[in-house]
C-alpha cells in the first residue's frame, strides 16, 4: 500500500540502494546455480521501492533486467511462476520495451506474448494503472 511518501530523503535512498545491492547479490548466486526463474522471482519480489529517485529506479531496473535476460525457456518459466507475479512482471516488460535496446526488446516481446496469453488484457491494464510500484 502507498504508505511510503512520494519523495524520499537522501538517506532513505541510500537504504534502498543497499537493499537493491543485496538483491543483486542474491540474484547472481541464483543464476550461478542455474535457477533463472528463482532469480526472476527474487527480482520481482521485495516490491520495487516506491520512489521518484531516478538513481534507485535505474539501479533496480538493472537488477531486474539481469534476471529477465537470463530467462531462456519462456514456457518453462511460466510453469513455475505464480500468477501473483504477473502484474508486476508486465510492468517491467513495458519498462524493458521503453529502453529501445534491441536484445532487451526482443526478450520482452517474447515474454509479453506468452504473458498476455496467460494473464489476458486485464494484466496489461493493471500494470498500466499501478501507481504503487514505480519501476
Amino acid at each position: 500500500m502507498a504508505t511510503t511518501c512520494d519523495f524520499v530523503e537522501a538517506d532513505n535512498a541510500e537504504a534502498i540502494i543497499t537493499r537493491i545491492e543485496h538483491k543483486s547479490r542474491k540474484i547472481e548466486s541464483l543464476l550461478k546455480q542455474l535457477k533463472p526463474v528463482e532469480a526472476l522471482k527474487t527480482a520481482l519480489e521485495g516490491s520495487p521501492p516506491n520512489t521518484r529517485d531516478e538513481r534507485c529506479k535505474s539501479a533496480n531496473w538493472i537488477v531486474v533486467h539481469r534476471a529477465l535476460m537470463a530467462i531462456k525457456d519462456v514456457d518453462g518459466m511460466f510453469s513455475s511462476l505464480d500468477p501473483e507475479y504477473y502484474d508486476i512482471l508486465m510492468k517491467y516488460l513495458y519498462r524493458g520495451l521503453s529502453t529501445g535496446d534491441r536484445p532487451t526488446c526482443d526478450q520482452c516481446l517474447r515474454i509479453h506474448e506468452k504473458l498476455t496469453e496467460r494473464a489476458g488484457l486485464g494484466c496489461i491494464l493493471r500494470s498500466l494503472a499501478d501507481t504503487v510500484n514505480t519501476v
Binding site: D87, A119, G120, L121, G122, C123, L125, R126
Partner: peptide, 16 residues
Amino acid sequence: VGPSPLAQSVAFRDLP
C-alpha cells in the same frame, strides 16, 4: 461495512 470492513479484491483477465 463499518469501522473495520472486510475487503476482497478479485483480479480478472479481461477488460475492466
